[in-house]
Every structure is written in C-alpha cells, then in structure tokens.
C-alpha cells in the first residue's frame, strides 16, 4: 500500500476543519463531547457506527446535527419487525412511458450519504442483512440490478438495550461490520440544566454547516494517508491477537475473539484520531483510545463470563492493561515507573 504522506500543513488544515466540526456538534448536543469525537472519528475512518443507549439521550439529534454540519443528504429509517428489505433498498416500480411499460428502480432510504437506522434490532434478520450488505459493499442489488450508493456512505444505527421483547439481536458477523459500537450515556445535572435552558421541545436546534461532503471525503482521504508506525501496527496486531482464547489472561473467558477486520478498524480509527489531534502519525495512545468502541462488540464471551456478569468491555479494558505497547518484554529485574506527564 503506497500513498503519499500528508504534509504538516495539510494535517494542520484538516485538523482545524475537524475541530470546527466538533465544535459545531457540541453546540447541538450538550455534554457528549466524547461521544461526538468518537462519532467524528468513526466518520473519518470511513466506518459505520452503532449507537446503543436508552431513548431520549440524543442519538437522533446527534445524527441530524452531524448531517447539518456536514451538509450531507441524510435519511432516517425507523426499523420495525414488518420492515422489508425493499423498504430500505428501494423497489422496482412499473412505469408506463409512451405506451411502453417498464420497471423503473425507485431508490429507498439507503440512497443517502448518511443513513440513520433507528432501532436496527427491531427489524427482521432479512432486512438487517439487506442493510448490512449495503454497508459492506457500498451498493444494493435489486432484481439482479446493482445500484451504487452515494459516497461517502455512512450508516449510524441505534439500538435500545432494554425492551428486548420482539427484537432480533444482530448476529456477531453483522456486528463486525460496524466500526464502532458506542454507548450513549446520559449527561450530568449540569448538562441537563444546559439543555433545559437552551432547548425546547418541538424546535430542533439549528446547526451551522462547517464543511461539505466533498471536504469530508478529503478529510477521510487525509486520515487514510497518515503514517502508521510499525511499532503501532505491531501493538494493534498483538492487541487483536490477545482477544482470542488462550492468547492472554484477559481472554480466558472469551469464546471468539476479534477478526482481522477489527485490526484494520483499529488502524483506521487510530489514524482518524491522530488527524483530529493534528499529528502526522497514529500512536499507541490513539489505538488505546479507540480500542474499546472497536473491540467490545467483536468479542463474544462464554457462558461462564455471562454468569459472572463480565462484559466484553471488561475484557477489552483488561487487555489494554495486559498487552504492553512494546513488543520487547522487560526482565523481572526491572519494572516501569508510572507514566510521565504527556510531553509535547
């Protein structure tokens, strides 16, 4: 894989644009700075995101604000059990023109740059598959005819961790298609106060557009071109490998570990985070920062872990503590002092 490394000026400009986007988003969603940064990181890594959280925490608002800030075409689909694949991909419609009848493809809601798949776990597996095929391939096929989706194409799916009656949990293979799985948490009282003071029911917030879809594509390309040091790639590889049973202490109760796609996702997300930070390279810190949203939905725990109440989040945190950044071990005669304050 050869591509030219970005210059410092390009990186600085790109970082500035991303920061402007983050600021704009923070104007819309109060107290969710980390979530917003994670979402933007996911976009810059060209990934689809799965947001999990209780109703009313601002998931939909987040997506709407994002679409407004970027100026991308956005569509929202509320997933229900009776939703059919054709309802989201589009259907051929019989049309008569000059006395001749023919099927004309009518694009569904997937044909947008930013698709909000609300409560994706309520749709049937068939519909979920249609969506996930579009996410993976970047096109849809209807009646043997392939229709490319607009680029960039992002799916931001949400799911509710409660009210699981009548839902269809996403299979692991499909979860793997999501770059991040983000937990949306409620804000503290100060955040709530801010929301109460600045927002009203029924009046959606107005978000200023800070960049275009083309500029976002440029930033995505810029992030992809950032330098990934070999030692960081080695750390990613060891981290992903350690998720498999028997490869580490932390993975003792893991049934299935993360796939190579997880390693690619980690690298892409680390680069995207480096761009946000205005750095020319991805680093250990970037990998550690994105490891939790990248890995936690890709690790399947065994029955014993579930009985004990362990979650994949616990496993990922344990892995981060266990796997050293440097491949070269330290002898027992030496130990590492606590990390110094971040330099530079």
């Amino acid at each position: 894989m050869t591509h030219s490394l970005p210059t410092d000026a390009e990186i600085a400009a790109g970082s500035a644009k991303v920061r402007a986007l983050l600021e704009a988003m923070n104007e819309v969603l109060y107290g969710q700075e980390d979530l917003i940064e994670a979402v933007v990181t996911g976009l810059l890594a060209r990934g689809h995101l799965l947001l999990e959280g209780l109703p009313g925490l601002g998931k939909t608002e987040l997506v709407k604000g994002l679409s407004g800030a970027i100026g991308m075409q956005t569509k929202r689909v509320q997933f229900t059990p009776d939703l059919l694949p054709g309802d989201i991909t589009g259907n051929p419609v019989l049309q008569e023109v000059d006395g001749r009848r023919s099927f004309v493809f009518q694009p569904g809601p997937l044909f947008a740059s930013l698709v909000l798949a609300d409560e994706i776990n309520r749709a049937s597996p068939k519909t979920q598959s249609a969506l996930l095929e579009a996410m993976q391939e970047g096109h849809v096929t209807v009646l043997g005819e392939t229709h490319p989706l607009p680029q960039p194409f992002f799916v931001l799916a949400t799911q509710n961790p409660i009210e699981l009656e009548g839902t269809y949990p996403l299979p692991e293979a499909q979860l793997d298609r999501f770059l991040f799985k983000l937990d949306v948490r409620r804000g503290d009282s100060a955040t709530l106060q801010k929301i109460v003071l600045n927002r009203e029911i029924g009046r959606p917030p107005v978000v200023a557009q800070v960049m275009t879809a083309a500029e976002l594509s440029g930033l995505i390309d810029l992030a992809r071109r950032l330098f990934l040091p070999e030692v960081v790639a080695n750390f990613i590889a060891r981290l992903v490998d350690a998720t498999h049973p028997g490869q580490s202490k932390a993975s003792a109760q893991v049934r299935y570990g993360a796939s190579p796609r997880a390693a690619l996702a980690l690298a892409a997300a680390a680069k995207a985070r480096a761009l946000i930070g205005g750095r020319p390279n991805a680093s250990f810190e970037d990998v550690k920062a994105v490891a939790l949203p990248v890995l936690r939905h890709r690790i399947l725990l065994d029955y014993q872990a579930r009985v004990e109440g362990r979650t994949s989040t616990d496993v990922v945190l344990a892995l981060l503590a266990e796997v050293p950044t440097s491949a070269a071990d330290l002898p027992r005669t030496l130990h590492t002092a606590p990390l110094a304050a971040t330099h530079g």
Binding site: F227, P229, D286, S326, A328, L339, A340, G344
Partner: peptide, 29 residues
C-alpha cells in the same frame, strides 16, 4: 536483548510522545 529501536519505543511511550520518535526514525517527521 532489545534494540535501540525498542528502547526508543519505550522512551516515547513513557514520555507520552505519541510515537513521534518512531515516526522521526522512519523519516516522516
């Protein structure tokens, strides 16, 4: 035994340099 490159990685990790030394050693920055 570790190499000087490994030692650089330890230094940059300890000093919070975001792998800048490895990147510099690669001639990127």
């Amino acid at each position: 035994f570790v190499t000087a490159g490994d030692a650089l990685v330890r230094l940059e990790a300890q000093l919070g340099l975001h792998n800048r030394l490895s990147t510099a050693a690669a001639g990127v920055c």
